[in-house]
Design a protein around this nucleic acid. Structure first.
Lengths: 229, 229
DNA sequence: GAGTGGTCTAGACCACTTT
DNA sequence: AAGTGGTCTAGACCACTCA
């Protein structure tokens, strides 16, 4: 074994190419609207056949990262917001979409065994909007160790840095305990909407987050279709 | 235009094959554990190249319908439990999946202008589990006018009678008013998980339903992936 | 008209796992 | 040892749509 962990089982060519293209897109190097090189161009660049890049581009299109049209070519799509699913949860975008002014504050931050443990208060128009507690796995996201999450809240930062392959949301309603009530500025016992989200990449847990909203004024919305397409 | 609606845009070969294999699996013709023919066998059967069936099988594996292993071949996986979505909401299945005994009661039923207006109490092990209020559009579902919903609750009946093309869920947490509290047998002011679901077929609203759950013991779960495969 | 993606082929070699 | 999926190639033709 030449590698320390043996975590690299000789990735396939199309996996390598896909990761390379994902990096271009997620990093903003290729911003929304950017015209992706043609399949023939990519095949030449990577020194492989067109079928191989075709497979990659098909995957990226399925993931909603690019839009492909004949003759017009492939362009990078804006955001990553609405998949056919309970959209990937991003409190910042949620506030901005509602026309609010967004700010956040990291309340605590701690590096534990294998993970970064965070709590974060999100505000809309300076009013507490959502309390978030999150754990990020350092195996999956090593960069998180030294990231202060000052410019961007954790969820937004992660979306821009880590592609995900699977996610799960669990939603419950709970009565506010004294602690949550104080953080969110509501009465103890008031209903809370609590969403727990887990995100994986290739079977490895990337992050787990718990979002607590005051129940009254908040709604989670999911829009979807029965057929994958 | 030779076809009345022009709905058949000459499906691709791999789409046809995929639909054929899906039909075998979803119909139970190929039950869980069934050994799917090898790629070479399928290619011969469909008279196409192995690459084409390989693409199909890759999609089916991504959708969780089959498990593929080298040498061992592909086998049909059990269930279809996790759809890629907040699964279509069916209180009866939800109760049965939790190992409970399900019963329901139609509390009111009224035919209004263009719709059927229903309220229904769902019970798990004889205990109130969910209160549902629903409107069904008669334009989209004419059969609903005379359906008593005695054998099956409205949601289950609709799933079996009406295909849908689009749906939306909205979820909030609310404090129980006196009425809801009485129906569900909980204390007024206790947190409720409220889900409002709208379902369309080709742009026309089919039904709109509001489900009210006691917040404490209930969770809604959605599991999904960004890439179809 | 020409460039792009959509699809399909007929092979090939390899990795893995069961026999 | 043999059969399976995993991957990749070097072409090919078509459909679409932009210029």
């Amino acid at each position: 074994m030449t590698s320390a962990k043996g975590e690299e089982p000789a990735k396939s060519l199309h996996d390598q190419i896909r990761e390379d293209l994902e990096a271009h897109i997620l990093s903003g190097d290729w911003p929304p609207g950017y015209r992706v090189p043609s399949e023939l161009g990519l095949a030449k660049h990577y020194g492989c056949s067109r079928m191989t890049v075709n497979k990659v581009m098909t995957q990226l299109a399925g993931a909603g990262l690019v839009l492909r049209r004949r003759r017009a070519g492939s362009v990078v799509l804006p955001q990553r917001s609405q998949n056919a699913v309970l959209e990937i949860h991003n409190v910042k975008d949620e506030v901005l979409a509602a026309g609010g002014w967004y700010s956040h504050e990291i309340l605590s931050r701690r590096v534990t065994d294998g993970g970064v443990d965070l709590s974060c208060l999100h505000r809309k128009d300076s009013v507490p909007f959502c309390f978030e507690h999150r754990v990020i796995a350092l195996d999956a996201v090593p960069d998180a160790r030294d990231e202060p999450f000052a410019d961007q809240p954790p969820g937004t930062w992660l979306l821009a840095h880590v592609p995900w392959s699977e996610a799960e949301n669990e939603i419950t309603a709970e009565a506010a305990d004294a602690d949550s009530a104080a953080r969110l500025g509501i009465a103890p016992g008031a209903p809370l909407l609590v969403m727990t989200r887990r995100t994986w990449k290739n079977g490895d847990l990337v992050t787990e987050a718990r979002f607590v909203y005051p129940g009254g004024g908040h709604r989670l919305r999911a829009r979807f279709t029965p057929t994958p397409g």
